[in-house]
Design a protein around this nucleic acid. Structure first.
Lengths: 190, 190
DNA sequence: CCGCTCATGTAACTGGTTACATGATTTA
DNA sequence: TAAATCATGTAACCAGTTACATGAGCGG
């Protein structure tokens, strides 16, 4: 029952919240969420779901919708245990590592741009992050309205991260200005 | 010259900073950095570097260290252009999307834990994030001492994100306590 | 001279993606 | 009745990982 991946456990979690639900519904949940890493492609979800059923953490039921059959899934007791132990501290190292930020990856090399291109970089980034922020605030409010304070809390994590990245970009703009001024004083090339 | 991946451009960036340098040195740079997503495995770096050389963005030189030959690389003019255009706004959507946080992924399902397990979750997460914070502050200071304020600025992004996640976990602990109290008032099961 | 680091790779695997195929049911 | 959505899959691909193999140079 152990060594389930994060994707597998997330699927488990979605089934736990939505049960009974189809693989298709899980797929839509992933595809529709902004705070999820996975894109929710059929090629990922269907194999995962049937693997989980094989493992005995999900239980499949054949339902009929009209005369068309469909598989719905729910957690088994074993599945609930697996999901719970995924959440139970101590958390694995990989769960608390630093997050990947493509903006940060790029920032390492900002010295290559001209001073005003650097400013434009931070302005563009800030504006785009604010768009994301609006989307995520909306998502959080939807969760609150739907009576799911836990998902709202999770989404709040995304909101906080976005605030932090926006603040970082604002500070970066100021710092980059200072660095450019220093460089000019010393007569360095751009 | 376009459609280079983030990994490829990051490699380009490292060569730009470190040139002339070997593929091995690039690999070590990736493996040693905490703020990088990629693990810097030989199986990734070597193919990327030779692909970049083939594309004409990197130029290979055969050097001799003793009587042992080794390839060192530097950017071509085309490579500098490619790196610059990777950084130049408007940034692609993928660069400003929300970051993946395994802690957040888990938080969606915290309702499954008992109230005190939830508290333990946030305490554990907070402690581990603070460790990461210390590591990244050290890394930033090393960059500052090494006279690389741009990398320091980038690392500051990681520090800010960690602060945000820590604050989020602290607030989560309070909110979860309130939620548990409400639930008990309403006589709901844990 | 032993073991560590430098240095260069390759092969098998993994976990996801895109894109496609198929067909029933619902809605405009 | 046409188009969209529900529903279930599969096949080809892709980027990066682990693990291995090999050998030169260097420090103790």
């Amino acid at each position: 029952m152990p060594d389930l991946t994060d994707l597998e456990c997330t699927v488990l979690g979605v089934v736990w919240k939505r049960a009974p639900c189809t693989a298709y519904a899980i797929m839509r949940e992933f595809a529709g969420s902004h705070s999820t890493y996975y894109r929710g492609s059929a090629g990922a979800i269907y194999p995962v779901v049937s693997r989980l059923a094989e493992r005995g953490v999900l239980e499949a039921t054949k339902e009929f919708h009209g005369r068309r059959p469909r598989q719905t899934y729910r957690l088994t007791a074993k599945g609930t245990d697996a999901l719970r132990s995924w959440l139970t501290p101590p958390l694995p190292d990989c769960a608390v590592t630093i997050t990947l930020d493509p903006l940060r990856t790029r920032s390492f090399f900002l010295a290559l741009l001209s001073p005003d291109q650097r400013v434009r970089f931070t302005l563009d980034a800030e504006a785009r992050l604010r768009e994301q922020l609006a989307i995520n605030i909306e998502e959080r409010d939807r969760y609150l309205a739907a009576g799911d304070p836990y998902s709202a809390l999770a989404t709040e994590g995304a909101i906080d991260s976005l605030h932090a990245r926006i603040g970082w970009m604002v500070r970066a703009r100021r710092r980059l200005g200072e660095l450019a001024a220093e460089a000019q004083e010393n007569g360095e090339p751009s």
